[in-house]
């Protein structure tokens, strides 16, 4: 593998890692405040991609072909912003309608997880029945450009995906350190009972967690659509499961764990496939990709059952 090819794989890995990490953050943040594995989260990613698709299609249609047509970067920005806001609304609504009533009645966590699974299926089949089984083509919001630097070629989309993800993650980390809402989110994950005694409205903090998690998934959905252009009702299932596993490997409940776990999974997947192109490793076809990468993750979990950043938590009442 030459350095050029290595760098190319590295960029691919970072792009996939960005998708996984952004989705994994939603899993881990909700787990942090509710100890709930929100299995509907992969489908929130799908919802975000579809909402982005409809906003983009609508905006592209506005004054198309005339001088009134919006510049492409405006469409991209509005699509991202609009989808993040609307998807956040979907996430908060699910919390409010499906999870909160159960929580307030002190239902066993198992019921919450089952409810989350059902919400996921509900979103998938709502999509299937209203929009049909045909895949949608996500429009090209900004024209793809291919750059070649020293034998490494990459697209502007890839750079935007990686750059935006990194910026968003740094922003999130700062939000959690510096703002009262962020500190409250971390406090809830440690001791939920003591938080209201600080004058903190717990339901507001939980809603804020769903806002952030869902809007990050929407961002990932639009980036995914921009990079691969194909949307389907079940697009969130496998990527959601993988992001969840990435969150667990990183240490569920730990923000940095989700980021590191997401990128780690991206790297493993891309480099397993890349290795298959090296002479002597041809047997490692891409069909082995998931098998090999999950084996690696299983080994990591066996060595560190709490994940890379996770600490064994004392059972809290």
């Amino acid at each position: 593998m030459t350095l050029g090819i290595f760098l190319q794989h590295l960029l691919n890995a970072m792009q996939w890692g960005s998708f996984y990490a952004l989705i994994a953050l939603g899993y881990t943040m909700v787990y942090g405040v509710l100890l709930l594995i929100n299995f509907a989260h992969g489908d929130i990613f799908m919802v975000g991609a579809y909402i982005g698709f409809f906003i983009a299609t609508f905006l592209l249609g506005l004054g198309a072909g005339t001088a009134l047509a919006l510049p492409s970067w405006v469409i991209l920005a509005l699509t991202i912003l609009g989808s993040m806001i609307l998807t956040a609304g979907v996430g908060v609504t699910i919390e409010r309608v499906a999870y909160r009533p159960l929580r307030e009645r002190g239902a066993n966590r198992l019921y919450l997880v089952i409810t989350a699974l059902m919400i996921g299926l509900f979103l998938e089949y709502l999509n299937l029945s209203t929009l049909g089984a045909a895949d949608r083509g996500f429009p090209e919001l900004i024209p793809t450009q291919v750059y070649t630097v020293g034998g490494v070629s990459f697209t502007n989309i890839k750079l935007i995906v990686i750059g935006l993800s990194v910026v968003v993650m740094i922003g999130l980390e700062m939000f959690l350190r510096r703002t009262k809402i962020g500190i409250a989110m971390r406090a809830i994950s440690y001791d939920k009972v003591a938080v209201p005694l600080m004058g903190v409205p717990v339901n507001t903090i939980i809603a804020a967690t769903f806002v952030i998690g869902s809007s990050l998934a929407a961002l990932a959905g639009i980036m995914y659509g921009s990079a691969y252009h194909v949307l389907s009702f079940d697009m969130g299932i496998l990527i959601g499961w993988k992001a969840f596993i990435a969150a667990v490997v990183g240490g569920i409940g730990e923000i940095r764990g989700a980021m590191v776990g997401g990128f780690l999974l991206g790297f493993i997947e891309i480099f397993v496939v890349a290795l298959g192109q090296v002479p002597g490793f041809e047997w490692l076809s891409s069909t082995y990709r998931d098998l090999v990468s999950f084996t690696i993750l299983l080994v990591i979990l066996t060595i560190r059952p709490t994940g890379i950043f996770g600490v064994a938590r004392r059972q809290k009442i």
Binding site: K180, I183, A184, R186, A187, S189, Y190, D191, V193, A194, L197, M198, G199, V200
Partner: peptide, 27 residues
Amino acid sequence: ISQVPEGRRIFGNLSVLENLMLATYAR
């Protein structure tokens, strides 16, 4: 009305300063 709960229940994952600042959430 503030409360110092049984068993203290401070936030072990937050710094001392963050513990104190969280209590000013509504202020």
